[in-house]
Simulated assay, not measured.
Amino acid sequence: MKKVILTLAFVATLSFVSCKEATEDKVEDATEAVGTEMENKAEEVMDAVDSTTSEVTKEVEEGAEKMGEKVEETVK
C-alpha cells in the first residue's frame, strides 16, 4: 500500500511539473507574440505620424505661399 501511494504521489508530481512547463512555454510564446504585435503597431503608428507630418507641412507651405500672393496683390 505504501508503494502504491508513493507511486501515485510521484506520478501526480511528475504530471504537475510537466503541465507547469507546458504552461510556462505557452505563456512565453504568448508574451513574445504580444511583444512582436506591439512592435509592428508602433511602426505603423510612426509611419502614420511621418505621413501626416509631411502632409501638414506641405499644406502649411501652400497656405503660406497663397497668403504671400494675396499680400502682394493687395499691396499693388
Score class of each variant (00 low, 15 high):
M1A: 05
M1I: 00
K2E: 15
K2Q: 13
V4N: 15
V4W: 12
I5P: 01
L6I: 03
L6D: 09
T7F: 09
L8G: 10
L8E: 12
A9L: 09
A9F: 04
A9R: 01
A9P: 03
A9S: 02
F10T: 08
A12F: 10
A12N: 08
T13M: 02
T13E: 08
L14G: 08
L14D: 01
L14N: 02
L14H: 00
S15H: 10
F16W: 07
F16M: 06
S18I: 09
S18K: 01
S18R: 10
C19R: 12
C19M: 15
C19I: 13
K20N: 13
K20H: 14
K20C: 12
K20F: 15
K20W: 14
E21M: 11
E21A: 11
E21V: 12
E24Q: 13
D25Q: 13
D25S: 10
K26Q: 10
K26T: 09
E28C: 13
E28Q: 15
E28R: 15
D29V: 07
T31M: 02
T31G: 06
A33K: 01
A33V: 00
A33W: 03
V34T: 08
G35M: 15
G35L: 12
G35R: 14
T36P: 02
E37N: 12
M38K: 12
M38T: 01
E39H: 04
N40P: 03
K41N: 08
K41M: 03
A42S: 08
A42V: 05
E43A: 10
E43C: 06
E43K: 08
E44W: 02
E44Y: 06
E44N: 00
V45M: 03
M46K: 14
M46S: 14
D47M: 09
D47W: 02
D47C: 01
A48L: 12
V49W: 03
T53A: 15
S54N: 07
S54E: 11
E55D: 15
E55S: 13
V56L: 13
V56P: 00
V56G: 02
V56T: 07
T57G: 08
T57S: 14
T57R: 07
K58R: 09
E59L: 03
V60G: 02
V60I: 11
E61H: 00
E62C: 05
E62R: 07
E62P: 06
E62D: 13
E62V: 07
E62N: 10
A64D: 02
A64M: 06
A64Y: 02
E65K: 09
E65M: 00
K66E: 04
K66W: 03
K66V: 03
K66M: 04
K66L: 05
M67G: 05
M67Y: 11
M67L: 11
M67F: 10
G68F: 03
G68Q: 04
K70R: 11
K70N: 09
V71M: 06
E72M: 09
T74P: 06
T74A: 15
V75F: 07
K76P: 01
